[in-house]
């Protein structure tokens, strides 16, 4: 079954540069697909289009998710909000509401499923609360349920965001650079969690990554982007350093995680890294 079907999608931002250029691709149920590319190559833009958070150009591009049109010819379709309930989005900056408790944040995953008045008043049933707690247990942070989201570490917040998509009952998870702001240990935990959700629940996962190593370790299929175009779509095992150099030239070095001895211990480097990630 086709989960995502994108045909001839383009997106130009006002400054004229094409963020997405005639992108067509399909993702089948149960796949775990990596989306790689340097910063500015259009990975995030593509993911935000699939979630219906951005509109494409008005030149006939179309995105279907689970067979329902989510946007077509630069218009978000009326049914987009219904489809969104089946799509869980995990963001680079976690996008949790920092002042709410972790449990409430995870419960917001239910908003697309419960009657609007009940969701708006934050009246969730015991079963729904239990469902959220179960999700938190699966990602291993059930002990932090009553803490405010901002008091968790980055890795824990990202796992809470994944718990939100589990509670949501999402059948497709779009993860937009989920590990770009995290240290290597937390990154592994987050990727393992995504991997488990993919294998155990047969949830389709599209994850954009900065570093090819993770793509090779976790995803069988990789889609590589450059300047808004899909330049490679195939098995991750083909992504050798030589091939990447061919694809990206001088930029290929930024797609590999620095080896541990290459990481300077000073906070200066960490700051630089962060600036790089957010730019």
């Amino acid at each position: 079954m086709l989960v995502v079907d994108i045909s001839r999608l383009s997106k130009s931002f006002t400054r004229g540069k094409r963020a997405l250029d005639n992108v067509s691709l399909q993702v089948r149920e149960g796949e775990m697909v990596a989306l790689i590319g340097a910063s500015g190559s259009g990975k995030s833009t593509l993911i935000r289009h699939i979630a219906g958070l951005l509109r494409g150009d008005r030149d006939g591009g179309k995105i279907e998710v689970f067979g329902e049109v989510i946007q077509q010819n630069g218009r978000i379709s009326r049914g987009a909000r219904k489809v969104r309930a089946d799509i869980g989005v995990v963001f680079q900056q976690f996008n949790l509401v920092s002042r709410l408790s972790v449990l409430t944040n995870v419960l917001t995953g239910m908003l697309g499923r419960v009657p609007a008045w009940r969701g708006s008043l934050c009246l969730f049933t015991k079963a729904e609360r239990m469902r959220a707690m179960t999700a938190l247990k699966r990602v291993g942070i059930d002990g932090h349920a009553t803490k405010k989201a901002r008091n968790l570490s980055g890795g824990q917040q990202q796992r809470a965001a994944i718990a939100r998509t589990i509670t949501q009952g999402a059948r497709l998870i779009l993860a937009d650079e989920p590990i770009a702001s995290l240290d290597p240990a937390s990154s592994r935990k987050v990727m393992n969690t995504l991997d488990r959700v993919n294998r155990e629940d047969n949830v389709t996962v599209i994850v954009s990554l900065h570093q090819v190593d993770y793509a090779r370790d976790y995803c069988t299929r990789t889609i590589a982007m450059r300047d808004g175009e899909v330049v490679f779509d195939g098995p991750s095992t083909e992504l050798t350093p030589e091939f990447l150099r061919e694809l990206y030239g001088e930029y290929s070095s930024e797609l590999f995680a620095p080896t541990p001895e290459a990481i300077p211990a000073s906070g200066e480097a960490a700051k630089k890294d962060l600036a790089y990630v957010t730019s």
């Binding site: 979630a51 958070l53 909000r81 219904k82 969104r84 309930a85 089946d86 799509i87 869980g88 989005v89 963001f91 900056q93 976690f94 996008n95 949790l96 509401v97 920092s98 002042r99 709410l100 409430t104 917001t108 995953g109 239910m110 908003l111 697309g112 499923r113 609007a116 969701g119 708006s120 934050c122 965001a161 939100r164 949501q168």
Partner: peptide, 25 residues
């Protein structure tokens, strides 16, 4: 705006975006 987008991505309606995404902030 990011937490609001997080709420929107769950399929919440506009009012719920305000209640869960804006007002706590």
């Amino acid at each position: 705006p990011e937490p609001v987008e997080g709420i929107r991505a769950t399929g919440a309606n506009g009012l719920q975006e305000v209640i869960f995404g804006v007002i706590p902030q």
